[in-house]
Design a protein around this nucleic acid. Structure first.
Lengths: 246, 246
DNA sequence: GTTAGCATACTGGTCTGACCAAGATCAGAC
DNA sequence: GTCTGATCTTGGTCAGACCAGTATGCTAAC
């Protein structure tokens, strides 16, 4: 029987995790590859199968690997959806984190729109145009409107043709989805929101079409700033109503 | 003996995970709380202890929970740093992604420097100043120089006082460490690099001190662009040498 | 030669019961 | 009242077993 921990105080789980991490980072394990079976892995590393399963499960929730029942464990192309899990938990206990995440989203989008100005192709333009049209069509609808808004911003990031930015934006936007919901109240509370939403997105679209990175960045940044202002005023409004009803 | 899967085809792990997820999202399990022991959890949910451990391990890698050896499992305050694992894996699998990652780094830093202009305090300024001084001192050293460079940029992000940006930057920068190495060649190949490195960082520092977001952003962006240009020319030089020696 | 069919090895999913080491607790000694 | 040590509890781990499908290959039929 071996010791419970290796010389460096490494736990069995860490051993297996580190082993797999190494291969994954080095590239000897690529997406699509099938890992050796849990049993083989266990004997190979001198640990028991439950420990191996802990490590595999850990990689699963990280979206690095997929355990297929009775098939095997395969390396997957990292999927952003796992971050949703994390953010869901995080936000459940820490609402003040939203503003922080929003800053990161602004960062990603502003960089993305600069790249989009350089790299966007016809298909990207068309996607943007469709999203823009949809924003106008759904301006009075809550859910559909929020969706259209999201798709427009998404289209910008996609047009950057940067995988990294797209992935990051996806994970950040995912946890901000609930803010799309709050859009309904905003539109109802401020009729001026309608022209803001339509005209602002139109200006952003124009800047991308003109392939003017500076103008696109500035316009997008201003767009976010105005949105913040609306949200701020909505909060003040809530406070007013709270006081009035109290 | 019960069935391996519940009626809805739910796996044992999912059962435990869902159980804990529910309590965590509902708030009946708050940060600092200690979970019941693995054994109790196992009997409570009618599964075996290894399965419970899988679920706990999953929550651990998500940063929701911390398993303390011989103490118990406690709910932790969600920390964005767990994303580090994910991004490390996710971004490591595409080697050609480096340029892409760099774009994301630029995005994060340019947003961070804007926030830094608003939020930086004396301590942040001092940290920046120290980093700036170090860049000058280590201008002829390869490793130390790269380190000083990194620390300066890191100081900018820290000064943004945004945890999300800080973590994202940390993850991205980790993948770009090798580019610090290549800095050595660049400085050797282009003596003008020295003044570029020193003066550019100085200008960035000044803009933050002046609390001028626009200027800071623009200066930083230009700094990255020039760095790209140096790298581009270095590649061309390599090609020239390759041709000459061929 | 080709193909349909079936036995078998293999895979993940899970359970049971056990042992270890060390923190936590409390009774009993001083 | 304090200190000490036995005991309980906790996580960390292992070994071996069973189930239910998948994959594969081999055999037999065409």
């Amino acid at each position: 029987m071996e010791l419970k921990r290796t010389a460096d105080g490494e736990t069995g789980f860490e051993k297996v995790f580190a082993f797999l991490r190494e291969r994954l980072l080095a590239g000897s394990l690529k997406p699509g590859d099938r890992l050796i079976s849990e049993r083989e892995l266990a004997t190979l590393l001198g640990v028991s199968r439950p420990i191996v399963r802990e490590a595999l499960r850990a990689l699963t929730v990280l979206g690095i690997v997929e355990i297929r029942d009775r098939i095997g464990t395969v390396v997957t192309r990292p999927d952003v959806s796992v971050l949703n899990d994390f953010f869901t938990f995080a936000l459940a206990q820490q609402a003040d984190m939203l503003d922080d995440v929003m800053q990161a989203r602004v960062a990603i989008e502003c960089q993305a729109i600069r790249l989009a100005c350089e790299r966007a192709n016809i298909a990207d333009f068309e996607r943007l145009q469709r999203a823009l049209a949809k924003i106008g069509e759904t301006i009075d609808e809550a859910d559909a409107g929020g969706m259209a808004d999201f798709e427009f911003h998404r289209a910008i990031v996609v047009a950057s043709h940067s995988e990294t930015l797209t992935v990051l934006h996806g994970s950040l936007a995912g946890l901000l989805t609930h803010s799309h919901r709050s859009r309904r109240k905003l539109v109802q509370a401020f009729p001026s929101m309608k022209t803001y939403l339509i005209d602002d997105h139109r200006r952003i679209f124009d800047a991308v079409i003109a392939r003017d990175p500076e103008r696109a960045d500035a316009t997008l940044r201003k767009h976010f700033a105005i949105g913040d202002e609306y949200r701020r005023r909505a909060i003040v409004g809530d406070i007013d109503r709270t006081i009035a009803s109290g």
